[in-house]
């Protein structure tokens, strides 16, 4: 068994997947809630499905990303695992791959649920505009990428932190800042912000370029209202994710390899 397999198995044995299946029950309530909409039942249904999927993936990413390494260190599994002829980097990346695989699987399940529920609702309330399924699934895929990026951040924090505090709350902070950074950037570019000092602008600009920009992964409105989306944007988001995540994983590996495990 590889460490990747062990990671995946550990997550299943911790009944995380069962928890996910419980959340799926909430999906069953979505058709009923959707009928509250006056004019856009299918859009509301998609809004609810995609938001729920987004939330579930986010919680999983925070929970798994923030605790898996921390638990190995805290319960001293690391002593047994890192004394095997397995480099620290390899250990970290296999753990990451295990979580990534699980999140991917969850995204698949959530996507399936979204398809099921939305198709059911659309059969009863024909939507005004056709549902663009590729955009809907693209939306969940981008949500997944965003969460994988967050897990990489959590790993980076775990690589040098001794408690789960920094991994979890640091990652939440990254999530909030990364989500807001585009909005702040746009605001500072607008005419409403002329009286803001140069120093603040510089700071905001450097944060904008340094921290991840999660707006790149948010195409919910496109998916909900069937707005056409260029493939190039998806490709750009994918490339951005790949480069940023590899950078973070490299950095985490570098830090973790230098860490003392007394």
């Amino acid at each position: 068994m590889t460490l990747l397999g062990a990671t995946l198995k550990g997550i299943f044995r911790d009944r995380v997947f069962r928890g996910l299946l419980m959340v799926l029950v909430v999906f069953a309530a979505i058709p009923a809630v959707s009928t509250l909409s006056m004019r856009q039942v299918v859009s509301l249904c998609l809004t609810l499905c995609l938001s729920l999927s987004s939330l579930v993936l986010l919680v999983l990413a925070l929970f798994l990303g923030g605790t898996v390494l921390w638990r190995d260190l805290d319960r001293r599994y690391c002593h047994a695992l890192l004394s095997l002829p397995l480099s620290r980097e390899r250990y970290l990346w296999e753990r990451y791959a295990g979580i990534a695989l699980f999140l991917g699987l969850s995204a698949l399940v959530l996507g399936g649920m979204t398809w099921l529920v939305t198709s059911f609702v659309a059969a009863g309330y024909p939507p005004g505009r056709p549902i663009l399924w590729t955009v809907v699934f693209g939306c969940i895929a981008l949500d997944l990428l965003k969460c994988l990026l967050l897990v990489a951040f959590a790993f980076c924090f775990s690589a040098f932190s001794t408690s789960f505090f920094l991994p979890i709350f640091g990652t939440i902070a990254i999530y909030l800042v990364g989500g807001a950074s585009q909005g702040v950037h746009d605001y500072l570019r607008s005419s409403a912000a002329t009286d803001i000092s140069l120093a603040v602008r510089r700071l905001a600009d450097s944060l904008y370029y340094l921290l991840p920009n999660f707006s790149l992964f948010d195409i919910k409105l496109y998916a909900i209202y069937g707005l056409p989306l260029q493939t190039s944007q998806l490709l750009l988001s994918g490339g951005y994710f790949l480069v940023y995540t590899l950078l973070l994983l490299g950095l985490s590996g570098w830090i973790f390899a230098r860490r003392q495990i007394p």
Binding site: V33, L36, S37, M38, L44, T47, L48, L50, S51, S54, L55, L58, D143, L176, G179, A180, Q182, G183, V184, F214, S215, D218, K220, L221, I224
Partner: peptide, 25 residues
């Protein structure tokens, strides 16, 4: 709305729908 949008950009559609749901109810 600006604060909500900055805090929960992922959930802006959901928040919008929630507010309308509340108005309807």
């Amino acid at each position: 709305p600006q604060a909500l949008k900055l805090l929960f950009p992922d959930f802006r559609a959901l928040l919008g729908a929630t507010i309308l749901g509340r108005v309807t109810l």
